[in-house]
Write a protein that binds this DNA or RNA. Sequence first.
DNA 1: TGTCCGAGTTGTACTCTGCAACCGGACGGT
DNA 2: ACCGTCCGGTTGCAGAGTACAACTCGGACA
Lengths: 153, 153
Amino acid sequence: MEATEAVETIQREMTSFARRARASAGRLHPELSLVSYTLLGHLEESGGCRATDLAAHYALDKSTVSRQVGALERAALIERRQDSEDHRVQVLHLTDAGRRILAQVTESRRTAFRERLARWPAADLERFAEYLVRYNAWPGPAAGSEPGPPAAP
Amino acid sequence: MEATEAVETIQREMTSFARRARASAGRLHPELSLVSYTLLGHLEESGGCRATDLAAHYALDKSTVSRQVGALERAALIERRQDSEDHRVQVLHLTDAGRRILAQVTESRRTAFRERLARWPAADLERFAEYLVRYNAWPGPAAGSEPGPPAAP
DNA sequence: TGTCCGAGTTGTACTCTGCAACCGGACGGT
DNA sequence: ACCGTCCGGTTGCAGAGTACAACTCGGACA
């Protein structure tokens, strides 16, 4: 396979993945959409942050985040805490229920991945993981100009 | 990196990709949504097929495909031809305009990919491409049970 | 104090999607 | 040949996810 051809293939396959991703989104875990899952995961990693941070990080409109956060709060998966320093700010935190659900969904996704990758040699897994990290890491910051997902489709 | 850890990483990175994919969907190529692009691409590859085939292949509802196809026809990017064998069937074909638009979008996505992958050694590109194909190919047919995209986040 | 800024909310509109009901052609058994 | 069933496709309806714009409220700085 030649390099140019490889680029084509990567483009096509990543696009294909994104397409299927979108198509199957939410069907496997009706209780947690892709966006909700991602937001919850971010809260877990960061240990609490503001809605605006989420919006900036994921290139979503603040109104979208506001509604998602509202839904997650109504579901009692997260809670808002007024920031004592700046009363405009609400710091979002996972609740115990949120942590539990997040763990469940993560586990179930992990199972699906394990199944899919079960027959791969360890060396290939490691290289594949490394490539993905490298691809996603890219310059990074310039989220706006991100060609990233081929138009992420 | 250990194999289990590699699986985790692959899961996380693929999820990350899907998330960004969704977030930036449609913004780069307003004239052609991800689904439209994919359908057009499929028609080009297959040289014409039925709406039902598209629905099955991409795990979309036939009504969704019907509407997408309607829009693409209204935009004069595809045309329907009655099947002479089975009058229920409409075989979809790209028009010249469709082929042109598809080529444009493909080229623009290709450019973005090239930029992103510019500094990769050829050997890595080839392996990465191969891994993606292997990942996406998987068993394949069982689209319904597809854990695929980690719940495509 | 007054003005400007930033965090969040809400109203509105649009797209994508799935489900269910429906139409009409094709096919098989009697 | 007739009828029941199956299948391809369309349409009505509902819901999720978004974006954009207008608005509210607290904070910062002159």
